[in-house]
Simulated scan of single mutants.
Amino acid sequence: MPTATSVTRHFHDPAGTITLDETARHRRRMKMVSDNGIEFLLDLAEARLLRHGDGLLLDDGQVIEVRAAPEDLLEVRGRDARHLLALTWQIGNRHLAAQILPDRILIRRDHVIRDMLEGLGAAVADVSAPFDPEGGAYGDAHGAHGHGHAHAHHHDH
Rank of each mutant, 00 (worst) to 15 (best):
P2M: 01
T3N: 09
T3I: 14
T8E: 02
T8W: 10
H10A: 06
F11L: 07
A15H: 13
G16D: 09
D21I: 12
E22N: 11
E22D: 11
E22H: 14
T23P: 01
T23E: 14
T23I: 10
T23K: 02
T23V: 11
R25S: 03
R25C: 03
M32D: 06
S34D: 06
D35Y: 04
G37L: 11
L41S: 04
L44E: 04
L44M: 04
L44S: 06
A45I: 12
L49A: 07
H52D: 11
H52S: 10
G53T: 03
D54N: 08
L56C: 04
Q62N: 07
Q62V: 04
E65D: 05
V66G: 07
E71R: 05
D72G: 07
L73R: 10
R77V: 08
R77S: 05
D80Q: 13
R82P: 01
R82T: 03
R82Y: 04
A86H: 08
A86T: 06
L87T: 00
W89K: 10
Q90I: 09
Q90L: 13
R94S: 02
L96C: 06
A97D: 03
A98F: 04
I100T: 05
I100Y: 13
P102D: 12
R104M: 04
R108T: 11
D115W: 08
D115G: 04
D115C: 06
M116T: 13
G119K: 01
L120P: 01
A122C: 08
A125S: 12
D126T: 09
V127S: 02
A129P: 02
P133N: 02
P133Y: 10
G136P: 06
Y138R: 13
D140E: 11
A144F: 13
G146I: 03
H149T: 05
H149G: 11
H151N: 09
A152T: 11
H153V: 10
D156A: 15
